[in-house]
């Protein structure tokens, strides 16, 4: 993986367009970044992943709260990876806790599809994972990102497995 990405996003028939968005990864740290997409409802009341992410977990974790696991699209996951992230961990509510009823299942299927697509692209599917959680502390949620990183990196901290490919 080069850590460099560049693509243009969207031109609608009505003429509205977003011109080419060039995103330059910085290699190194960029290649070790783990993006944590989590449903904000998985957290125990009063917990904040954003604050906890600042503490030392030995690798850059980028937490992104989403309204529901079902709002995570396959394209989001792939764009994050194409933008240079090493891995994506999707954390959604346990099935019996999902306020949208099917949100977690949708997320799970999309993650499975994303992993399938990555396999077709010759990219390690383990770079994307999905975990169900409920009433979790911020540390527990961040630990899921660390676990995802462990599945991707050959050692921690160290060189991403992907650099050898």
């Amino acid at each position: 993986m080069t850590g460099r990405s560049r693509w243009a996003v969207g031109v609608r028939a009505d003429g509205q367009r977003e011109e080419a968005v060039a995103k330059e990864g910085s290699g190194g740290e960029q290649n070790r970044r783990v993006v944590l997409l989590y449903c904000h409802r998985v957290l125990r009341q009063g917990e904040s992943v954003g604050a906890a992410a600042d503490s030392s977990f030995g690798l850059p974790i980028q937490p992104v709260a989403v309204a529901c696991g079902s709002s995570v699209e396959v394209s989001h996951i792939l764009k994050i990876l194409a933008d240079g992230a090493a891995a994506v961990e999707v954390v959604t509510c346990a099935d019996d806790c999902c306020s949208s009823l099917l949100g977690s299942r949708r997320a799970q299927r999309r993650v499975e599809y994303a992993r399938q697509l990555l396999g077709q692209a010759g990219v390690d599917p383990a770079r994307v994972g999905h975990t169900l959680a409920s009433d979790a502390t911020s540390a527990e949620v961040l630990e899921l990102a660390v676990s995802r990183a462990k599945a991707v990196f050959s050692e921690m901290p160290g060189v991403p497995k992907g650099e050898d490919q």
């Binding site: 460099r4 194409a82 933008d83 692209a121 010759g122």
Partner: peptide, 23 residues
């Protein structure tokens, strides 16, 4: 929006990155 980053990943993985714009 799904295929663009997927192609980017696949092409980078095969050592021939290209610029992909979408419309």
């Amino acid at each position: 929006e799904t295929l663009a980053p997927l192609l980017q990943l696949a092409l980078e993985n095969s050592g021939r990155p290209i610029e992909i714009a979408t419309a």
